[in-house]
Amino acid sequence: MASGGPEIEQLIQLLARLPGLGPRSARRAVLHLIKKKDQLMIPLSAALDRAVLAVRSCEVCGNVDTQSPCSICADPRRGDAGMLIVVEDVADLWALERAGVGAVRYHVLGGVLSPLDGVGPDDLSIDMLIRRAPDYREIVLAVNATVEGQTTAHYITDRLVGSGAKVTRLAHGVPVGGELDYLDEGTLSQALKARTEI
């Protein structure tokens, strides 16, 4: 238990719930915020208050933005892209945007199928994806290469039969800059199966 009062302890407990922050990291973050109260804590609190009121989920793709449809869906330059990239969550969408994949559209599933965790097709935005599919030439399943991700990809592929869209997935294998002796057997096996001509 931290000394300093219940407000500080509550702040530590709330920050510790964030991904990548445990109790020790949260405690250090809170102490830093307290030391920089005027420069950091007060502006952060104000920004959080504004975000609570302004941030919403896009009614089209599931991205988070301050408008709906989001700025990606509202961008007229993406209108004739013909490619819809399906991702598990918003973090994946943002990663692809940072990578500059081009003038594409997205669809956020909101997770992956996981019967052990009680996540079924009705818990994800798969039905909305099926409704959007006929508007695109290609649907890229950019889900993680986990058992749950691949199960989700197979389920979606089966549901997209007859949509008229070509269904593809991201390539898996050796990352750029990767060294073979540091890679796991599954990655090496997949890279060999998906080899291309030079």
Results as ranks from 00 to 15, higher is better:
residue 3 S to D: 15
residue 3 S to V: 14
residue 5 G to N: 10
residue 9 E to V: 12
residue 9 E to R: 15
residue 10 Q to N: 13
residue 11 L to Y: 11
residue 12 I to Q: 10
residue 12 I to N: 05
residue 12 I to R: 07
residue 15 L to V: 05
residue 16 A to S: 12
residue 17 R to C: 02
residue 20 G to D: 00
residue 21 L to E: 01
residue 22 G to L: 03
residue 22 G to C: 00
residue 25 S to K: 15
residue 25 S to I: 06
residue 27 R to Q: 12
residue 29 A to T: 12
residue 31 L to D: 02
residue 31 L to N: 04
residue 35 K to Y: 08
residue 37 K to F: 03
residue 48 L to F: 04
residue 52 V to L: 14
residue 54 A to H: 03
residue 54 A to Q: 12
residue 54 A to E: 14
residue 57 S to L: 13
residue 58 C to H: 08
residue 59 E to I: 12
residue 61 C to A: 11
residue 64 V to P: 11
residue 66 T to K: 15
residue 69 P to F: 08
residue 73 C to V: 14
residue 76 P to G: 15
residue 78 R to G: 12
residue 78 R to D: 13
residue 83 M to T: 14
residue 86 V to I: 04
residue 96 L to M: 09
residue 97 E to L: 03
residue 97 E to R: 09
residue 97 E to Q: 04
residue 97 E to K: 01
residue 99 A to C: 02
residue 102 G to P: 08
residue 102 G to W: 09
residue 103 A to P: 07
residue 107 H to D: 00
residue 107 H to R: 08
residue 110 G to E: 01
residue 112 V to A: 11
residue 113 L to Q: 03
residue 117 D to K: 11
residue 118 G to I: 10
residue 128 M to L: 13
residue 129 L to W: 01
residue 132 R to I: 08
residue 136 Y to A: 10
residue 137 R to E: 07
residue 139 I to N: 00
residue 140 V to S: 04
residue 142 A to V: 09
residue 142 A to F: 10
residue 144 N to W: 01
residue 148 E to L: 03
residue 152 T to I: 06
residue 152 T to C: 06
residue 153 A to W: 06
residue 156 I to Q: 04
residue 157 T to W: 06
residue 164 G to A: 14
residue 165 A to W: 00
residue 168 T to Y: 06
residue 169 R to W: 08
residue 170 L to F: 12
residue 173 G to H: 03
residue 175 P to S: 07
residue 177 G to W: 05
residue 178 G to R: 00
residue 179 E to N: 12
residue 186 G to A: 15
residue 188 L to G: 02
residue 190 Q to K: 13
residue 191 A to R: 01
residue 191 A to L: 06
residue 195 R to H: 05
